[in-house]
């Protein structure tokens, strides 16, 4: 029993990270209909720039959590600047291009960011200094650390703040209007370009938070770390219904829990025929099943084909 609880906790922590990254994907997708493949790289830049800042601050002797917070506060504007620049240089000129052109651009941007990071931060893996408490609390025989609790809570909090922003503020209304119909939104006095820029900046800020959390939780950061994470988060966003904030959260948590349970129990369930190496197969299989029955994801609206 405590093994099951532990697996669900594992899944929740992993899922919260996926969800945080997935939020960035889904925001951009919601407003532009673009899969921003470079989002994972922004997460990586967040992690590495925070790490650099933390490395400089550690000798100052400030308490650990303060240092991490300072690192985060530096990573957020860095990522926002990167997100803003990407949108301006790479995506904006392609607003009216055929649907796949921005996808290729996104892949190109992803490669460029990765190589720049490799040139800047080197090829080696970086270690996140042990600044936060990793003592495990016991919850009914299962273990969870302070950091993991912080990750789950932060993800929930940011998610709630985002929903509030999108549904309750003027800016949120402008975002929804731009997503619905940019031309009409423009006629209604919405500065669509600014709204889109803002969406990228916000999504990149979230990516910075996610990057710092990943690096802190796994105590590792590397210039190639963004790709897999981005892929998983993208899967999570689609599972929940891409373009939908609640869907990204749900999809992220579900994917985390599915992976965790699959890794833990797939061997027993199949009598040892399949093992934990098939956890991704299992996750994709669930995704395909969900999409067969709900073609626009768990919480996605039924939309007509985009022109």
């Amino acid at each position: 029993m405590d093994i099951l609880i532990q697996q669900i906790i594992n899944g929740l922590v992993l899922g919260s990270i996926y969800a945080l990254v997935a939020l960035g994907y889904t925001m951009v997708y919601g407003i532009l209909g673009l899969i921003n493949f470079a989002h994972g790289e922004v997460v990586m830049i967040g992690a590495l720039s925070a790490l650099t800042a933390i490395g400089l601050l550690v000798p100052s002797g400030l308490p650990g959590p303060v240092v991490v917070l300072a690192g985060l506060l530096i990573a957020i504007p860095v990522c926002m600047a990167v997100g803003f620049t990407i949108e301006r240089i790479a995506y904006r000129p392609l607003r009216n291009a055929p649907r796949l052109a921005p996808l290729i651009t996104a892949i190109g941007v992803s490669i460029v960011l990765q190589q720049l990071a490799m040139m800047g931060w080197g090829r080696n893996y970086h270690t996140f200094p042990a600044l936060l408490s990793v003592t495990a609390h016991k919850v009914g025989g299962a273990a969870i650390t302070d950091l993991q609790i912080i990750i789950v809570l932060t993800a929930a909090l940011l998610m709630a703040a985002l929903v509030w922003l999108v549904t309750r503020t003027r800016l949120g209304r402008a975002m929804r209007a731009s997503a619905e119909n940019p031309a009409v939104a423009r006629l209604m006095g919405v500065d669509v370009d600014r709204v889109i820029s803002f969406t990228f900046v916000l999504g990149s800020g979230l990516a910075a938070v996610a990057g710092v959390m990943v690096a802190a939780n796994y105590s590792i950061a590397h210039y190639a770390m963004g790709f897999m994470l981005g892929l998983k988060a993208f899967t999570a966003a689609v599972l929940g219904g891409i373009g939908n904030l609640g869907g990204a959260m749900l999809g992220g948590l579900l994917l985390g829990i599915i992976e965790s349970l699959a890794a833990g129990y797939i061997g027993d369930l199949t009598g040892g025929f399949l093992g934990s190496h098939y956890k991704d197969v299992f996750a994709f299989f669930v995704l395909i099943l969900v999409l067969v029955f709900r073609p626009s994801g768990l919480m996605g609206e039924k939309v007509a084909e985009r022109a």
Partner: peptide, 21 residues
């Protein structure tokens, strides 16, 4: 038990929990 991961993974909580059992 024999458990598996990949060379790109950073999260081993699930397989280690299985190992623990």
């Amino acid at each position: 038990t024999r458990e598996y991961t990949t060379d790109k993974e950073t999260d081993f909580a699930a397989i280690l929990t299985k190992v623990k059992s």
